[in-house]
Design a protein around this nucleic acid. Structure first.
Lengths: 143, 143
DNA sequence: TTCGTATATTTGTCACACTAATTATTATTG
DNA sequence: CAATAATAATTAGTGTGACAAATATACGAA
């Protein structure tokens, strides 16, 4: 069934538009961060004070990418790197008060932006999508 | 239903893995091109001799990205830019014989790579996925 | 203890996405 | 016909993704 090949085009195209739409709204509303930086802030909020390796894993980024995103968040004073007392190789990434505040200030607006994509779709659609994407994801495990 | 927000994480994660897996196989099998370069070659094969603007549209790329991919394909001698006789602002992108040959040589292997993702999924799943992704895509039309 | 290996992070390089600005050409309008 | 607007392609700048290599530290085995 060669036409199934189209899934890769559809996936790539849709993922890019989702990100582009969100970033466009972030810019219009002057959130001052990127979509990927937001994902890291949310991860920190949810799991709190992780090492970069753990944070990368939970957020689905690789470590070099996470390093660079954390660099940007540090320069915006939204997070800080703290020494890890039990392992001097690693850092603990910690939300600053400004970071906490940013999350509180943006959460509602960002939920609204995200939900724009879900118009005309329902619970069953979500379950389908989640199952199919997870299947693809595990089918392609390289390791 | 705030949990629907996860669709963006799932989409991004899956699209990246699909691309990463394909690129990994491209590298192992020494195809000598990237996944995105392949998408442009296939677009040219299908539609033949388009301007860069048209090619970008059909392939779902923006114009600056397409310019750079075409640059790389030109340097690999797989395509060439030809003057457009009716509009001196634009080029016609044309597959070279080497480009045609590359497509013929790789098509079967790439179909096989693509189908790895589809294990344990069926026709209905494809229809679901296509409908849901297309709905999201059109929901987020910025223009 | 010490040597070798594993791990956390960083850095470098190439490719791609998006935006804005530039250049050359074409189309329009006054 | 000249001035202006629109368009195709490019370039520049920033952010992200993947991979490999480098660095510093931790851990395990001899």
């Amino acid at each position: 069934m060669e036409r199934y090949n189209d899934y890769s085009f559809l996936l790539d195209r849709t993922a890019r538009r989702v990100k582009q739409y969100a970033q466009y709204q972030f810019n219009c509303q002057q959130f001052g961060i990127t979509v990927d930086q937001w994902a890291i802030l949310k991860g920190l909020k949810q799991y709190a004070d992780l090492s970069q390796k753990e944070l990368a894993e939970y957020c689905g980024k690789d470590q070099p990418t996470l390093t660079r995103i954390v660099d940007l968040l540090v320069s915006k004073k939204l997070v800080e790197r703290q020494a890890n007392p039990t392992d001097r190789r690693s850092f603990v990434v910690h939300l600053t008060p400004a970071g906490e505040q940013k999350i509180d200030a943006l959460s509602d607006s960002i939920n609204k932006i995200r939900m724009e994509a879900w118009k005309k779709l329902n619970e069953d659609d979500f379950e389908h999508l989640k199952r199919i994407l997870d299947t693809i994801y595990t089918n392609l495990n390289i390791g």
